[in-house]
Design a protein around this nucleic acid. Structure first.
Lengths: 188, 188
DNA sequence: AAAAAAAGTTGAACTAGTTCAACTCTCCGG
DNA sequence: CCGGAGAGTTGAACTAGTTCAACTTTTTTT
């Protein structure tokens, strides 16, 4: 039973020892090489992942072919396409390893079974989703009221570990600006 | 027991008749006059609301004093500040009636009790939150890859009912542009 | 270690969106 | 029904961010 996963869960719900064990035993350790895809746009998402180490980028190609980064997932983050997982529809997202990484993965069947078997699992993901929702709302507001330079500086100071692992191009795609402009921001 | 609430719940979870009744009986009908606040920035959110009719605007004042609209909630939408409700911390959000409105409201104590008593309530809000999460992710992407004009047109065609109830100033604040620029967009 | 590919830099010209100020229109409160 | 406040419009000057193209640097592949 993995200690990091255990701690992560405990932040959001109170599991008994047996519940924790029952929950964790469905996760299997998988390795991803740098640049390898955990999910590709068009595929159906049949799993959920929890990052033990390494880093992933979650992004999508829009109609115009630009790549938009939704977020980065390093150690202690969860990975999945909620939409595709829920409806078993083709995913709009790509999830790609930015470096060699280790992920604990649970498949969809097991997760659905756990929702049924352990009510506390419903609570766990309810709380996780509500917290994530708040974070997305805040990010949208910040995109409206802060300049690109402010957003860049905030990101670097909030996530120094992630900032050091990603290229400027990926950073720009996360901030919603061109990489040329990011280069000009950094110069000053 | 309100029919609209019942239908809304049934979209996201399967309640038995008794569960539905137990759940719904904690909601009380409240009336809000045009311009009245259901929640003010700085207050603690101790309730959750479900709009029966009318319309609300959920917005926040940023550091620079600009008002940013997160979303509008008309008939069949839920209303609350997840962050403030969860942590009982002062809210960053304002929720104001744009017209005379009716809302079914449940207080925090009852809602927390229902989470304990009826496991299906956990599921309901877990599913609702996950769907909302997907919607916020999509909105952020669209803000990056669409122009203000495109976002305006998409909003009007997706939510014609809401569009007709709000002022251009409120629309601009939702789109993340100035109302002067919205006026220029509409002119063309 | 060489070649190829990708990432980053820089400048010039451009455009989407802002700011400010002046004006008009609408609608609601006394 | 009048007065005032807020909503909407318009123009001119501005700025944040884009686009394109040429170039350098770094990383990856062989």
């Amino acid at each position: 039973m993995n200690e990091l996963l255990k701690q992560n869960i405990s932040k959001n719900a109170t599991f008994s020892e047996t519940e924790l064990e029952e929950f964790c035993k469905h996760f299997k350790l998988k390795y991803f090489k740098k640049k390898e895809y955990l999910l590709k746009q068009g595929d159906v998402c049949r799993f959920e992942g929890f990052v033990l180490n390494g880093c992933f980028r979650i992004f999508t190609f829009d109609q115009k072919g630009n790549d938009n980064t939704l977020y980065f997932a390093a150690e202690d983050w969860w990975l999945m396409d909620n939409d595709s997982f829920m409806h078993q529809s083709p995913s709009h997202l790509n999830i790609q390893a930015l470096e060699d990484s280790e992920v604990l993965m649970i498949n969809r069947t097991d997760k659905l079974m756990l929702y049924e078997k352990l009510p506390v699992v419903e609570k766990l993901f309810r709380v996780m989703s509500q917290k994530a929702l708040v974070a997305w709302q805040r990010r949208l507001i910040r995109n409206h009221c802060e300049t690109a330079k402010e957003r860049y500086q905030n990101f670097v100071s909030t996530y120094p570990d992630i900032s050091s692992k990603i290229t400027d191009k990926q950073m720009a795609s996360y901030l919603g600006i061109t990489h040329e402009f990011l280069s000009k921001i950094k110069k000053r």
